[in-house]
Design a protein around this nucleic acid. Structure first.
Length: 557
RNA sequence: CUGCCCGUAGCUCAACUGGAUAGAGCACCAGCCUUCUAAGCUGGGGGUUACAGGUUCAAUUCCUGUCGGGCAGACCA
């Protein structure tokens, strides 16, 4: 199964043959479009307009020549010239019927492609430091990251889902101090409470478990508390393990899993940071000034040079970041995608500069970044800003508990990453057409209900005569279904799952309209089987599409 | 002050990366249930694509400038 439009390619082929005669030497980028206006046919080509200038001829005349040379095909009902020189193709209904058995035999494979076979991609997302529960922004990352991984896997890529975190920096020290203060019985606001501290209630929970000498186990570590309030190292390790476990629970509730956790501290212990600095110095891209070591990031388009090694001898944060990305490259990931908040955009230029400066063959745009904006939460007409668990922010788990995993995923994926999103909790739990996730799932449930009512075996639909499928609603639906593989491919390429969300809403809309206009389980057996086959095709696209988004497709609602 | 992102119907967003008359949903108005889920569907009004130039057969899309919003701009992470 390819990831292109099943019919578009065939039309392009026909035009290509005609062009060999009309304009054998002129370079034309053969793009077949699907016109927005149905009157303009099913497909259209602007080849004649592109050729008008190089050939110095009237585009409509060229279009006529192309039409004359176009090989005959059963697919095309008629082709005509329109507007400034568009060639519009109206397809025969039988051409659309062809996609139904094609999709049904592909089944779960429908929409998958092999463009990425043999290639490895690493997607880094969430990457929250273990200093508190995941908030809604992490939720947006988790939804985006998981969907993008699914989309790439659907194109044949070998995907690694990676969670990177700082387990030893300033913030972890703050965490340890906060837990220690709680363990000593202090509370936020007390005179001795540390100035830089985390104030959420969860800190008190950690302190209590630490004193009780509990053991905590997370996906990537396990630790038993010493219970000694003066043992800051034990407190730190316990708190990190505790919060990693909390985050695991958050991720589990969201049905997101990671293949690998990567620790910033490991970059120091395994010598990668030192090695990176050495490489940069040897490449002549550094200089010393004011007792600090600087990297000439301005050679690679950055605004100003950046300090790598501070005058106190420690490294700035982007040095391990560069070392980490060299490691990604050396691990064989020819493509790396980082999903982060827009507040990180300042780091892009310097990380890429560092990767270029080491000259180890890393391509210029490595890694890719997908930056997302803030999520605000509305409930009962008011913005929700605080939560019981975390204090200052709404957590991912709050949101899932108020609504559902499916709604949170679908909603957070429904907008381009770079637009701000307002999450409407009331809408997410609504059981009506206003709620887009419900609308799509409901279409699926309706199809399942029809099949239950029918009671036959899906196999009976193989080879069904599809000639009765000529109603406008049916043609629209088949046209929509044929677009699915392209949508998946584009959503992957553009790192834009919202395209798929949008598509599924359109598909569900087409189905609901058809369902309302025609009864499927009619007396005429041929018509009945044809309609059931098309409904089954729709079911496949909805199930496959929702699966890529990490959203379930219930059979009953 | 500088850099990046954004600006499309009253609201929330699309627009196949330069195509034809800029599309959906919400809200508003008018309709549709002896029917496989009305938990749904059909129709209608609503736009100088922030503004001004430019590039070309064609601009919401690309370039320049202006205005408005978001995020950054430490030897912080």
């Amino acid at each position: 199964m390819s990831n292109t439009h099943p019919l578009k390619e065939q039309i392009a082929l026909l035009i290509g043959i005609a062009l060999e005669t009309v304009a054998p030497d002129a370079p034309v980028s053969l793009e077949i479009e699907r016109p927005k206006n149905p009157a303009h046919g099913d497909f259209s080509s602007n080849a004649a307009m592109q050729l008008a200038r190089p050939l110095k001829r009237n585009p409509r005349e060229l279009a006529q020549l192309i039409l004359t040379e176009l090989p005959a095909s059963k697919l095309i009902a008629r082709a005509e010239i329109a507007g400034a020189g568009f060639i519009n193709f109206h397809l025969a209904p039988a051409a659309w019927h062809g996609i139904v058995p094609q999709i049904r035999s592909a089944g779960a494979q429908f929409g998958r492609g092999d463009a990425g076979t043999g290639h490895k991609v690493l997607v880094e997302f969430v990457s929250a430091n273990p200093t508190g529960p995941l908030h809604v922004g992490h939720g947006r990352q988790a939804a985006l990251g998981d969907a993008i991984c699914n989309l790439y896997a659907a194109q044949g890529w070998q995907v690694c889902r990676e969670f990177y975190y700082n387990d030893a920096g300033v913030q972890i020290a703050t965490l340890a101090n906060s837990v220690q203060a709680r363990a000593k019985g202090l509370k936020p606001g007390d005179a001795d409470w540390p100035e830089a501290a985390y104030n959420g209630d969860y800190i008190a929970d950690i302190a209590a478990d630490f004193l009780a000498k509990q053991t905590v186990k997370s996906d990537d570590r396990e630790f038993t508390a010493s219970g000694d309030v003066d043992d800051l190292d034990s407190i730190r390790q316990f708190a990190v393990a505790y919060l990693r476990h909390e985050q695991d629970l958050d991720l589990k509730a969201f049905a997101v899993r990671f293949d690998h956790y990567y620790l910033e501290s490991s970059l120091y212990t395994d010598g990668r940071v030192e090695a990176t600095v050495k490489r940069l110095i040897e490449a002549g891209k550094t200089y010393e000034q004011d007792n600090a070591l600087w990297l000439r990031t301005t050679d690679y388009g950055d605004d100003k040079d950046r300090v790598m090694k501070k005058s106190d001898g420690t490294y700035t944060y982007f040095v391990p970041d560069v070392a980490y990305h060299i490691a990604k490259w050396e691990r064989g990931y020819e493509r790396a995608i980082n999903i982060q908040g827009t507040d990180h955009h300042g780091t892009i230029a310097r990380v890429r500069a560092g990767l270029q400066a080491v000259s180890v063959g890393i391509p210029q745009g490595y890694p890719d970044y997908l930056l997302h904006t803030m999520v605000r939460v509305m409930r009962g007409g008011e913005e929700v800003k605080i939560s019981k668990r975390a204090g200052g922010y709404v957590t991912l788990r709050d949101l899932i508990e108020w609504t559902s995993k499916d709604a949170v995923r679908f909603f957070l994926l429904s907008r381009k990453a770079d637009t701000e999103y307002i999450f409407d909790v009331d809408l997410a739990v609504a059981k009506n057409t206003d709620n887009p996730v419900y609308y799509v799932q409901y279409a699926h449930a309706r199809i399942c209900r029809v099949f239950e009512e029918w009671g036959g075996m899906a196999d009976a639909l193989d080879g069904a005569d599809l000639a009765p499928l000529i109603a406008p609603h049916e043609l629209v639906l088949m046209q929509r279904l044929a677009e699915y593989p392209e949508i998946v491919a584009t959503a992957a390429r553009e790192l834009a799952p919202h395209l798929l969300v949008h598509y599924l809403q359109m598909l569900a809309g087409d189905f609901h309209a058809w369902y309302n206009a025609e009864k499927f389980l009619v007396d005429d057996a041929t018509t009945k089987l044809a309609r059931l086959a098309l409904a089954d095709t729709t079911r496949i696209a909805i199930v496959n599409g929702l699966a890529l988004l990490g959203v379930s497709a219930p059979e009953k609602m």
